[in-house]
């Protein structure tokens, strides 16, 4: 039995692959890319929500939002930590993010412009992320799967707090309702595009499914998300900005309109409204923290 056979046998028997096990180079590279992208998304994702912490409208809202954004830092850390087991250090991953060699979820390149956006981000963006992450709890790489289990457990409050914010506004004053609908309009399409291109257009999906990294396809996950979200929107009187959205009695799923993939790819490739701001913010904090890290390292060398 070759190493590859042994590896595939483990995958087929749902035995997790662990850091010191033999794995095909493509598997390692795919995971390094996907896991670091996932980690970067958590960390960059702190910015659009962090944007509202100092302006939260109540003390309760403030601590909830702060705790949530803090969780994202924690989840970024769990994911970097899992990705480091693949033989690449966090410093290298960070360098790849800052040099734009690595990507992060494109949704975070959109600005958060009113308080309802905190609702939309929690409800729709985290909602979409959770659908994906629940599925990834069964991924074949042990450290990744374990990080996902921990993340899913902690994220359970994230979507609920978002829905709470947006429902209070949707059911509030006319001004609040308008903000809620505006947030919905801006975040709906980017949220459903978070699942990535259609299966037939997704170049790397094949290997990822074969290797058990991806368990469900982009389109299946997207459908799952849309199906559960429509009723939640209706309940609070928000309109999903898609005139083609309707229930299909035959498939027992919602049909929905065409997504604008040109916009998607242009944002992925750097031309979104906040791409430069997000990366520059990250670089600035990183550079301003350099003397602190150097001091801490110097002190530890002298005193440990």
């Amino acid at each position: 039995m070759t190493d590859l056979d042994k590896f595939l046998e483990k995958i087929n028997n749902n035995i997790k692959i662990e850091p010191k096990d033999w794995m095909p180079d493509g598997y390692r590279k795919h995971l390094q890319r996907q896991m670091s992208q996932h980690a970067h998304s958590e960390v960059i994702g702190m910015q659009p929500e962090g944007n509202w912490i100092t302006r939260a409208p109540s003390l309760r809202a403030k601590v909830i939002l702060l705790a949530k954004v803090q969780d994202e830092a924690g989840h970024g850390q769990y994911l970097y930590s899992a990705a480091e087991t693949l033989g690449k250090s966090r410093a290298v991953y960070i360098e790849e993010l800052q040099s734009r060699k690595a990507k992060y979820s494109s949704i975070f390149n959109y600005p958060t412009l009113n308080w309802a956006d905190m609702g939309a981000v929690g409800w729709l963006v985290d909602g979409a992320a959770i659908v994906n992450q629940v599925s990834l709890q069964k991924t074949s790489y042990g450290p990744y799967a374990r990080a996902m289990v921990k993340i899913c457990k902690e994220e359970s409050f994230h979507q609920r707090q978002g829905y709470e914010i947006i429902s209070k506004m949707a059911l509030g004053s006319p001004e609040q309702k308008e903000m809620a609908q505006d947030a919905m309009n801006r975040f709906w399409w980017p949220s459903i595009m978070m699942f990535g291109p259609h299966d037939q257009d997704s170049a790397r999906s094949g290997d990822a499914m074969k290797w058990g990294i991806k368990i469900e396809s982009n389109d299946d996950l997207r459908q799952k998300f849309i199906d559960k979200t429509v009723a939640q929107a209706e309940l609070i009187g928000l309109t999903i900005p898609d005139k083609d959205l309707k229930w299909n009695e035959e498939t027992k799923h919602y049909d929905f309109g065409a997504m604008d993939w040109d916009e998607f790819w242009s944002v992925v490739n750097g031309d979104g409204p906040c791409n430069d701001d997000r990366i520059n913010h990250h670089i600035k904090a990183h550079e301003e923290g350099r003397w602190v890290r150097e001091a801490a390292n110097a002190y530890a060398e002298k005193n440990n």
């Binding site: 480091e84 966090r90 960070i94 990183h286 350099r290």
Partner: peptide
């Protein structure tokens, strides 16, 4: 290379 400390 940036030094992010040791892993514990």
């Amino acid at each position: 290379m940036d030094n992010q400390g040791d892993i514990w």
